[in-house]
Nucleic acid binder design. Structure first.
Lengths: 210, 210
DNA sequence: AAAGCACTGTAACAATTGTTACTGTCAGAA
DNA sequence: TTCTGACAGTAACAATTGTTACAGTGCTTT
């Protein structure tokens, strides 16, 4: 595990910290589509991504859902960080977008390392900042863009994360993540197809003109 | 100034830190309606609120605007915090909502105190967390609520912050902050008046049934 | 007093988004 | 093969939000 840690976090953390992480953490391989964090769940470990991608969703009590952003390798879940400084319940839902490899660190080390390692402090602050900017970006998209632009945006993000212009998903799933209805998604996707921006298949679609 | 610092931050910071803050900071009284931070502005000081309230707005290049949240006493601007860990440009606009008293701390101390004082670390992390939750809340409102609900929500927040159910503003200003049009706001306000939830005046309105 | 200006009310209409309903298609299960 | 259920296409309509245009009202300035 130390090898992989060094590969992905070696440029951030000193050897001593890498070793500490290695000593207290567990490595996990998680298949695509697995729910790893639920809203309201109490968290005792924070994830550090090695490979793969995770989608972070907002979920409210009435079944409303909305995609916030994706996490990639080198990222950590800032929402987990917040759990160490106050409320311990998750405000979000996290699902692996593709097969993912990550390290779980017991959250008590978060605080310990904050005092001990500047590199860890910087990492935590940098994570907060990155997630903050992602949230702002999400707000921009919801507030300032129309559904057709949001949809195209979503497809491009998805293609990027998956490293593939062939996107395997259903109209219903897209509708959930953009918080709209399946019919609206079908309608707009059809328009995108007419504009030769995508090609529609069953259970998948293809993004052209990347 | 030390007196006021102790009054508002004494329960958070140890005496030594309070004194350090006192030594390097400047106290400012800022009248209502003053723009204190603009989008794209480079920040060299971070504000700590003593009295008053500040509204934080998202502003894009095309003149779109959106209210994100309000800051009150004891709060700091997490967006300023992000400037210390990477990009130095502000992503947001800040305007005093009422007369405001605050301390400006040169940002280089942010990093210094992070290593030196646990209480400062906790404060910074706690600020990040609070602002993160505010942003999530903002996203909930934009994504899941209709304009009439958002409007009422906005009016209640505004009344709370000002400590007054008489809200002095124009329909146009509300429209900007909710990112909609003046006509829509007028229309919905009229409905709220018919439902006996508010009373409309010129340049102001009154919130009933608090 | 008259003019100018910001603010509000309202109508009429357009565009976008949401909803319901029904149809056809495809893939896997029985 | 037939049945079933998930998925996609489409029409028709409703609701919400955005836009344009114009009129009236109160305040300030000239």
């Amino acid at each position: 595990m130390l090898e992989e840690l060094k590969k992905h976090y070696g440029y951030l953390f000193e050897d001593q910290l890498l070793e500490e992480i290695n000593n207290v953490s567990t490595l996990k391989d998680i298949p695509e589509g697995t729910k790893i964090i639920e809203v309201g769940q109490t968290l005792s470990k924070m994830p550090l991504l090695l490979e793969g991608a995770i989608k972070i969703l907002r979920d409210d009590d009435k079944g409303d859902e909305l995609l916030l952003y994706f996490l990639e390798k080198g990222d950590t879940c800032a929402m987990t960080l917040t759990c160490c400084t106050g409320n311990a319940k998750s405000e979000i839902k996290a699902i692996t977008e593709i097969d993912t490899k990550l390290i779980m660190v017991p959250i008590q080390y978060m605080e310990i390392w904050m005092g001990k390692y500047k590199s860890w402090r910087d990492f935590v602050l940098q994570s907060y900042q990155a997630r903050m900017l992602e949230l702002l970006d999400t707000i921009d998209k919801i507030a300032f863009l129309k559904m057709d632009e949001r949809l195209l945006n979503y497809l491009k993000d998805k293609a990027m994360i998956n490293g593939n212009t062939l996107i395997k998903t259903t109209h219903q799933e897209i509708a959930y993540e953009l918080h709209t209805s399946r019919v609206v998604v079908s309608r707009l996707l059809k328009k995108l197809e007419q504009q030769k921006i995508i090609i529609l298949h069953r259970n998948s679609l293809e993004l052209l003109n990347i």
